[in-house]
Protein backbone atom coordinates (compact mmCIF):
# COMPACT_ATOMS: atom_id res chain seq x y z
CA UNK A 1 0.00 0.00 0.00
CA UNK A 2 1.41 3.43 -0.92
CA UNK A 3 1.81 6.33 1.45
CA UNK A 4 -1.06 8.29 -0.12
CA UNK A 5 -3.44 5.36 0.37
CA UNK A 6 -2.69 5.31 4.08
CA UNK A 7 -3.32 9.05 4.37
CA UNK A 8 -6.63 8.82 2.54
CA UNK A 9 -7.71 5.96 4.73
CA UNK A 10 -6.89 7.84 7.91
CA UNK A 11 -8.85 10.89 6.78
CA UNK A 12 -11.88 8.93 5.72
CA UNK A 13 -11.87 6.95 8.96
CA UNK A 14 -11.80 10.16 10.98
CA UNK A 15 -14.61 11.66 8.92
CA UNK A 16 -16.77 8.61 9.21
CA UNK A 17 -16.29 8.34 12.96
CA UNK A 18 -17.23 12.03 13.39
CA UNK A 19 -20.34 11.48 11.33
CA UNK A 20 -21.33 8.40 13.30
CA UNK A 21 -20.66 10.35 16.54
CA UNK A 22 -22.98 13.16 15.52
CA UNK A 23 -25.75 10.72 14.64
CA UNK A 24 -25.25 8.92 17.97
CA UNK A 25 -25.42 12.17 19.95
CA UNK A 26 -28.57 13.14 18.02
CA UNK A 27 -30.14 9.81 18.93
CA UNK A 28 -29.40 10.55 22.61
CA UNK A 29 -30.88 14.04 22.17
CA UNK A 30 -34.01 12.55 20.62
CA UNK A 31 -34.52 10.21 23.59
CA UNK A 32 -34.10 13.00 26.16
CA UNK A 33 -36.36 15.34 24.17
CA UNK A 34 -39.10 12.72 24.03
CA UNK A 35 -38.81 11.63 27.66
CA UNK A 36 -37.88 15.09 29.09
CA UNK A 37 -36.17 13.06 31.84
CA UNK A 38 -32.50 12.00 31.81
CA UNK A 39 -33.08 8.87 33.91
CA UNK A 40 -35.88 7.52 31.74
CA UNK A 41 -34.03 8.43 28.54
CA UNK A 42 -30.91 6.63 29.79
CA UNK A 43 -32.96 3.53 30.64
CA UNK A 44 -34.52 3.60 27.15
CA UNK A 45 -31.06 3.82 25.59
CA UNK A 46 -29.73 1.03 27.84
CA UNK A 47 -27.04 3.29 29.22
CA UNK A 48 -26.33 4.98 32.53
CA UNK A 49 -27.14 8.61 33.16
CA UNK A 50 -23.68 10.25 33.43
CA UNK A 51 -22.51 9.32 29.89
CA UNK A 52 -25.90 10.43 28.55
CA UNK A 53 -25.58 13.85 30.22
CA UNK A 54 -22.04 14.08 28.88
CA UNK A 55 -23.23 13.18 25.38
CA UNK A 56 -25.84 15.96 25.47
CA UNK A 57 -23.26 18.48 26.72
CA UNK A 58 -20.91 17.48 23.87
CA UNK A 59 -23.68 17.88 21.32
CA UNK A 60 -24.51 21.35 22.71
CA UNK A 61 -20.82 22.24 22.51
CA UNK A 62 -20.56 20.88 18.97
CA UNK A 63 -23.61 22.82 17.80
CA UNK A 64 -22.77 25.91 19.90
CA UNK A 65 -26.29 26.21 21.26
CA UNK A 66 -28.18 25.08 24.36
CA UNK A 67 -30.81 22.41 23.66
CA UNK A 68 -32.36 22.00 27.12
CA UNK A 69 -33.23 24.20 30.09
CA UNK A 70 -32.56 22.07 33.13
CA UNK A 71 -32.96 22.55 36.85
CA UNK A 72 -33.03 20.06 39.68
CA UNK A 73 -36.60 18.98 38.88
CA UNK A 74 -37.35 19.81 35.27
CA UNK A 75 -35.94 19.29 31.83
CA UNK A 76 -37.42 21.39 29.00
CA UNK A 77 -36.50 21.96 25.40
CA UNK A 78 -35.20 25.39 24.48
CA UNK A 79 -36.50 27.12 21.37
CA UNK A 80 -33.39 25.95 19.51
CA UNK A 81 -33.89 22.41 20.90
CA UNK A 82 -37.49 22.28 19.64
CA UNK A 83 -36.58 23.29 16.11
CA UNK A 84 -33.46 21.10 15.99
CA UNK A 85 -35.56 18.15 17.19
CA UNK A 86 -37.60 18.24 13.95
CA UNK A 87 -34.46 18.24 11.83
CA UNK A 88 -32.82 15.54 13.96
CA UNK A 89 -35.82 13.24 13.47
CA UNK A 90 -35.42 13.67 9.70
CA UNK A 91 -31.68 12.95 9.84
CA UNK A 92 -32.10 9.84 11.98
CA UNK A 93 -34.89 8.50 9.78
CA UNK A 94 -32.54 9.07 6.85
CA UNK A 95 -29.80 7.11 8.62
CA UNK A 96 -32.23 4.24 9.16
CA UNK A 97 -33.07 4.24 5.46
CA UNK A 98 -29.38 4.35 4.45
CA UNK A 99 -28.53 1.43 6.71
CA UNK A 100 -31.53 -0.62 5.59
CA UNK A 101 -30.72 -0.04 1.92
CA UNK A 102 -27.05 -0.92 2.45
CA UNK A 103 -28.19 -4.11 4.19
CA UNK A 104 -30.37 -5.05 1.22
CA UNK A 105 -27.45 -4.60 -1.15
CA UNK A 106 -25.21 -6.55 1.24
CA UNK A 107 -27.68 -9.44 1.26
CA UNK A 108 -28.15 -9.20 -2.51
CA UNK A 109 -31.78 -8.11 -2.31
CA UNK A 110 -31.45 -4.81 -4.16
CA UNK A 111 -29.92 -3.34 -7.30
CA UNK A 112 -29.56 -4.93 -10.67
CA UNK A 113 -27.50 -7.70 -12.24
CA UNK A 114 -26.00 -7.18 -15.69
CA UNK A 115 -25.76 -10.53 -17.39
CA UNK A 116 -24.64 -11.60 -20.86
CA UNK A 117 -26.07 -14.51 -22.85
CA UNK A 118 -24.76 -15.86 -26.17
CA UNK A 119 -26.76 -15.01 -29.32
CA UNK A 120 -27.40 -18.68 -30.09
CA UNK A 121 -28.87 -19.49 -26.67
CA UNK A 122 -32.34 -19.62 -28.23
CA UNK A 123 -35.52 -17.72 -27.52
CA UNK A 124 -37.03 -20.42 -25.35
CA UNK A 125 -33.99 -20.52 -23.08
CA UNK A 126 -33.98 -16.74 -22.68
CA UNK A 127 -37.72 -16.81 -21.93
CA UNK A 128 -37.17 -19.45 -19.24
CA UNK A 129 -34.13 -17.72 -17.78
CA UNK A 130 -35.97 -14.61 -16.59
CA UNK A 131 -38.55 -16.38 -14.37
CA UNK A 132 -35.94 -18.90 -13.18
CA UNK A 133 -33.81 -15.98 -11.97
CA UNK A 134 -36.78 -14.08 -10.50
CA UNK A 135 -37.64 -17.10 -8.35
CA UNK A 136 -34.15 -16.94 -6.83
CA UNK A 137 -33.38 -13.24 -6.49
CA UNK A 138 -35.30 -9.97 -6.04
CA UNK A 139 -32.77 -7.87 -7.99
CA UNK A 140 -33.51 -6.65 -11.48
CA UNK A 141 -31.95 -8.76 -14.26
CA UNK A 142 -30.58 -6.84 -17.24
CA UNK A 143 -29.82 -9.33 -20.02
CA UNK A 144 -27.59 -8.51 -22.98
CA UNK A 145 -27.17 -10.75 -26.00
CA UNK A 146 -23.42 -10.86 -26.78
CA UNK A 147 -20.87 -13.45 -27.86
CA UNK A 148 -18.20 -15.06 -25.71
CA UNK A 149 -15.31 -12.79 -26.76
CA UNK A 150 -17.30 -9.64 -26.14
CA UNK A 151 -18.62 -10.96 -22.81
CA UNK A 152 -15.02 -11.53 -21.67
CA UNK A 153 -14.13 -7.92 -22.50
CA UNK A 154 -17.26 -6.66 -20.71
CA UNK A 155 -16.55 -8.79 -17.61
CA UNK A 156 -13.00 -7.42 -17.57
CA UNK A 157 -14.04 -3.77 -17.78
CA UNK A 158 -16.86 -4.37 -15.28
CA UNK A 159 -19.71 -3.44 -17.61
CA UNK A 160 -21.03 -6.98 -17.08
CA UNK A 161 -21.46 -8.83 -13.75
CA UNK A 162 -21.86 -12.38 -15.02
CA UNK A 163 -21.92 -14.12 -18.38
CA UNK A 164 -22.91 -17.35 -20.08
CA UNK A 165 -19.82 -18.35 -22.00
CA UNK A 166 -19.01 -21.03 -24.50
CA UNK A 167 -15.70 -22.83 -23.92
CA UNK A 168 -12.81 -22.56 -24.47
CA UNK A 169 -11.80 -19.23 -22.94
CA UNK A 170 -9.10 -18.02 -20.56
CA UNK A 171 -10.39 -19.04 -17.11
CA UNK A 172 -7.41 -17.74 -15.16
CA UNK A 173 -9.31 -14.79 -13.64
CA UNK A 174 -12.82 -16.24 -13.60
CA UNK A 175 -14.96 -18.42 -11.35
CA UNK A 176 -17.20 -20.89 -13.13
CA UNK A 177 -20.63 -22.39 -12.59
CA UNK A 178 -21.25 -26.03 -13.53
CA UNK A 179 -20.02 -26.87 -17.03
CA UNK A 180 -22.88 -28.09 -19.23
CA UNK A 181 -22.46 -29.87 -22.53
CA UNK A 182 -24.63 -30.34 -25.58
CA UNK A 183 -23.56 -33.03 -28.03
CA UNK A 184 -23.44 -31.90 -31.64
CA UNK A 185 -24.84 -33.61 -34.69
CA UNK A 186 -24.84 -32.62 -38.35
CA UNK A 187 -27.40 -31.09 -40.67
CA UNK A 188 -27.61 -33.00 -43.98
CA UNK A 189 -29.60 -32.43 -47.16
CA UNK A 190 -32.75 -34.62 -47.09
CA UNK A 191 -31.65 -36.65 -50.10
CA UNK A 192 -28.17 -37.43 -48.73
CA UNK A 193 -27.53 -41.17 -48.26
CA UNK A 194 -26.52 -40.58 -44.62
CA UNK A 195 -29.82 -38.83 -43.88
CA UNK A 196 -31.53 -42.14 -43.17
CA UNK A 197 -28.78 -43.57 -40.95
CA UNK A 198 -29.49 -43.62 -37.18
CA UNK A 199 -26.21 -41.81 -36.56
CA UNK A 200 -23.20 -40.63 -38.49
CA UNK A 201 -19.48 -41.17 -37.97
CA UNK A 202 -17.30 -38.11 -38.55
CA UNK A 203 -15.21 -40.22 -40.94
CA UNK A 204 -18.35 -40.80 -43.07
CA UNK A 205 -18.34 -37.09 -43.90
CA UNK A 206 -15.15 -37.20 -45.97
CA UNK A 207 -15.71 -35.59 -49.36
CA UNK A 208 -18.10 -33.02 -47.84
CA UNK A 209 -17.32 -29.43 -46.91
CA UNK A 210 -17.98 -28.20 -43.36
CA UNK A 211 -19.99 -25.08 -42.55
CA UNK A 212 -18.69 -23.50 -39.35
CA UNK A 213 -18.97 -20.15 -37.53
CA UNK A 214 -16.43 -17.50 -38.66
CA UNK A 215 -13.02 -18.32 -37.18
CA UNK A 216 -12.43 -14.75 -36.00
CA UNK A 217 -15.42 -14.95 -33.62
CA UNK A 218 -13.82 -17.80 -31.61
CA UNK A 219 -10.44 -18.91 -33.03
CA UNK A 220 -9.67 -21.44 -30.28
CA UNK A 221 -13.04 -23.21 -30.60
CA UNK A 222 -12.83 -23.14 -34.40
CA UNK A 223 -9.43 -24.85 -34.26
CA UNK A 224 -10.57 -27.36 -31.63
CA UNK A 225 -13.52 -28.41 -33.84
CA UNK A 226 -11.25 -28.98 -36.83
CA UNK A 227 -8.68 -30.83 -34.69
CA UNK A 228 -11.43 -33.13 -33.35
CA UNK A 229 -12.70 -33.75 -36.90
CA UNK A 230 -9.16 -34.68 -37.96
CA UNK A 231 -8.76 -36.90 -34.88
CA UNK A 232 -11.86 -38.84 -35.95
CA UNK A 233 -10.84 -39.16 -39.57
CA UNK A 234 -12.72 -36.26 -41.16
CA UNK A 235 -10.79 -33.61 -43.08
CA UNK A 236 -13.36 -31.33 -44.75
CA UNK A 237 -12.76 -30.59 -48.43
CA UNK A 238 -13.37 -26.96 -47.53
CA UNK A 239 -14.42 -24.99 -44.43
CA UNK A 240 -17.12 -22.39 -45.14
CA UNK A 241 -17.34 -19.66 -42.53
CA UNK A 242 -20.98 -18.72 -42.00
CA UNK A 243 -21.97 -16.08 -39.47
CA UNK A 244 -25.68 -16.33 -40.20
CA UNK A 245 -27.65 -19.57 -39.61
CA UNK A 246 -29.70 -18.92 -42.78
CA UNK A 247 -26.51 -18.80 -44.88
CA UNK A 248 -25.28 -22.02 -43.23
CA UNK A 249 -28.63 -23.65 -44.04
CA UNK A 250 -28.38 -22.48 -47.64
CA UNK A 251 -24.96 -24.08 -48.07
CA UNK A 252 -26.29 -27.39 -46.70
CA UNK A 253 -29.41 -27.25 -48.89
CA UNK A 254 -27.23 -26.59 -51.96
CA UNK A 255 -25.57 -29.97 -51.34
CA UNK A 256 -21.93 -30.90 -50.77
CA UNK A 257 -21.69 -29.49 -47.25
CA UNK A 258 -22.72 -30.31 -43.68
CA UNK A 259 -23.21 -27.97 -40.74
CA UNK A 260 -22.88 -28.69 -37.01
CA UNK A 261 -26.02 -28.32 -34.91
CA UNK A 262 -27.12 -29.26 -31.38
CA UNK A 263 -30.40 -30.78 -32.66
CA UNK A 264 -32.64 -28.48 -30.58
CA UNK A 265 -35.22 -27.29 -33.13
CA UNK A 266 -33.27 -28.04 -36.32
CA UNK A 267 -34.31 -25.88 -39.28
CA UNK A 268 -36.90 -27.27 -41.74
CA UNK A 269 -35.85 -28.74 -45.08
CA UNK A 270 -32.76 -30.55 -43.75
CA UNK A 271 -32.18 -33.64 -41.61
CA UNK A 272 -30.36 -33.63 -38.25
CA UNK A 273 -28.34 -36.73 -37.39
CA UNK A 274 -26.33 -37.30 -34.18
CA UNK A 275 -22.62 -38.07 -34.39
CA UNK A 276 -21.63 -41.52 -33.18
CA UNK A 277 -19.71 -41.39 -29.88
CA UNK A 278 -20.49 -37.65 -29.42
CA UNK A 279 -16.99 -36.53 -30.40
CA UNK A 280 -18.05 -32.88 -30.65
CA UNK A 281 -19.66 -30.97 -27.78
CA UNK A 282 -20.54 -27.39 -27.04
CA UNK A 283 -19.51 -26.68 -23.46
CA UNK A 284 -21.16 -23.79 -21.67
CA UNK A 285 -21.03 -22.34 -18.21
CA UNK A 286 -21.86 -19.23 -16.24
CA UNK A 287 -18.72 -17.29 -15.37
CA UNK A 288 -17.87 -14.20 -13.33
CA UNK A 289 -14.69 -12.48 -12.11
CA UNK A 290 -13.38 -14.38 -9.10
CA UNK A 291 -13.51 -11.51 -6.63
CA UNK A 292 -17.07 -10.45 -7.53
CA UNK A 293 -19.37 -13.24 -6.43
CA UNK A 294 -22.65 -11.90 -5.02
CA UNK A 295 -25.92 -13.67 -4.08
CA UNK A 296 -27.41 -12.37 -7.36
CA UNK A 297 -24.52 -13.89 -9.36
CA UNK A 298 -25.05 -17.22 -7.62
CA UNK A 299 -28.79 -17.01 -8.33
CA UNK A 300 -28.08 -16.33 -12.01
CA UNK A 301 -25.60 -19.21 -12.30
CA UNK A 302 -28.16 -21.56 -10.71
CA UNK A 303 -30.91 -20.30 -13.04
CA UNK A 304 -28.66 -20.85 -16.09
CA UNK A 305 -27.92 -24.41 -14.96
CA UNK A 306 -31.63 -25.13 -14.43
CA UNK A 307 -32.72 -23.71 -17.79
CA UNK A 308 -29.96 -25.27 -19.89
CA UNK A 309 -30.38 -28.64 -18.19
CA UNK A 310 -34.12 -28.52 -18.92
CA UNK A 311 -33.18 -27.79 -22.52
CA UNK A 312 -31.27 -31.07 -22.70
CA UNK A 313 -27.75 -29.97 -21.83
CA UNK A 314 -25.88 -32.31 -19.51
CA UNK A 315 -23.25 -31.95 -16.84
CA UNK A 316 -19.80 -32.52 -18.29
CA UNK A 317 -18.64 -36.08 -17.80
CA UNK A 318 -15.18 -37.53 -17.33
CA UNK A 319 -12.62 -36.35 -19.82
CA UNK A 320 -10.83 -38.35 -22.48
CA UNK A 321 -7.45 -39.88 -21.77
CA UNK A 322 -4.81 -37.18 -22.19
CA UNK A 323 -1.19 -37.77 -23.01
CA UNK A 324 0.97 -34.67 -22.57
CA UNK A 325 4.09 -34.57 -24.75
CA UNK A 326 7.60 -33.87 -23.40
CA UNK A 327 7.28 -30.23 -24.50
CA UNK A 328 4.70 -29.89 -21.71
CA UNK A 329 7.82 -29.77 -19.47
CA UNK A 330 5.97 -30.34 -16.18
CA UNK A 331 4.32 -33.75 -16.53
CA UNK A 332 5.94 -37.11 -16.98
Amino acid sequence: MSKSDITTLAISERLSSQLVDLLRHLRHFLAVAEELHFGRAAARLHMSQPPLSQSIRRLERELGVRLFDRDARHVALTDAGRQILTEARGLLAGEDRVRALAGRFRRGEAGSLRAGVPPDLGGRAVAALLPAFRRRSPVELKLREIGTAEQLRALADRSLDVGVLRFPFDVSWLALGPVLTSPLGVLLPQDHPLATAPDVRLADLNGLALVLFPRATAPALHDEVLTTCARHGYTPTEVHQAGNPEFALGLVLAGGAVALHDGVTPPPGVVWRPLRGTPLLWQTSAAWPRDRRTPAVTAFADAVTEVLTAQGMRHAEGTLPRYPRPAAEYLS
Partner: peptide, 12 residues
Protein backbone atom coordinates in the same frame (compact mmCIF):
# COMPACT_ATOMS: atom_id res chain seq x y z
CA UNK B 1 -3.51 -35.16 -13.42
CA UNK B 2 -2.94 -35.29 -16.30
CA UNK B 3 -6.59 -35.38 -17.50
CA UNK B 4 -7.75 -33.06 -14.70
CA UNK B 5 -5.32 -30.43 -15.97
CA UNK B 6 -7.40 -30.03 -19.15
CA UNK B 7 -10.61 -29.40 -17.18
CA UNK B 8 -11.29 -25.64 -17.12
CA UNK B 9 -13.02 -25.87 -13.74
CA UNK B 10 -9.91 -27.47 -12.23
CA UNK B 11 -7.62 -24.93 -13.90
CA UNK B 12 -9.65 -22.06 -12.44
Amino acid sequence: PPSALTDPVVLS
